[in-house]
Design a protein around this nucleic acid. Structure first.
Lengths: 125, 125
DNA sequence: TTTATATTTGAACAGATGTTCAGATATAGA
DNA sequence: TCTATATCTGAACATCTGTTCAAATATAAA
């Protein structure tokens, strides 16, 4: 992440970058979002952009499930599920609650469902 | 993609998969989306989950731009932009129109903007 | 305390991914 | 046709990523 190398004092005028529409470039730069926000947004989509993690998210649409249930549902090891759940948790895509030895995972908020349903709409065109 | 190895005739009953809530697993499997759809949805998020490509998408929020403008805006080579634009095009996230030698790229539809804005809402919590 | 269950963790390996570089197209104009 | 511009493409390389496996926690029950 934060891969792009931006040289703040290197504008189209000062160094040899080719530009056709200076105005559009200037506006796009002006309207750009902070790097930290871009990184976080990138990470959110990246974490959703893996078939195992997305399958976990989809499985949780119907309500909370424990690790071994999720593993059985999507057909991978519990260890692999646990590893991916951690990443989903880090991005606030899921959250967990403990009941005895069992940890129940749920989608963290409505936005996660929204992202999925808009994504589904987009590919149905 | 399509990484998960599913054995259709291997249910919790027939092979030794540990399951705590059989009913939840059964329901999740019943409500699962087709593999092809999951793969496409995964790919859509994966393509958006890269800082260069997401920066391109964000730059195009203000309207169409040509390759060199995009390159100048986000500060990477035109070749790299071109490579990433192709992937964005393959997923129908952007589309292009030619005017002479110049190719203008735009966001393909409203869903792309929606995904971005919901993603931004999600991280602002 | 000992045993069993549910989940997590770290290391390691194979496979995937983005950028760079050089060269190839495609269009416009002379 | 020849030259210039704008963009694309393929190969190569270094980096990143997900799974597996073995071992470590955490909780409950005996």
């Amino acid at each position: 992440m934060a891969k792009r190398k931006i040289q703040p004092d290197c504008t189209a005028e000062t160094c040899g970058v080719r530009v056709i529409h200076l105005d559009r470039v200037a506006r796009a730069k002006r309207e750009a979002i902070p790097d930290k926000v871009l990184d976080r947004l990138t990470l959110t989509f990246k974490i959703m952009g893996d078939s195992t993690r997305l399958a976990i998210i989809l499985a949780l649409r119907g309500g909370e499930m424990c690790v071994c249930d999720i593993a059985a549902t999507i057909g991978i090891s519990e260890s692999a599920v646990s590893h991916q759940l951690r990443r989903l948790r880090e991005l606030n895509l899921v959250r967990s609650r403990r009941d005895g030895q069992v940890l129940y995972y749920t989608l963290d908020d409505q936005h996660v469902l929204d992202l999925v349903s808009i994504g589904l709409k987009h590919i149905n065109e």
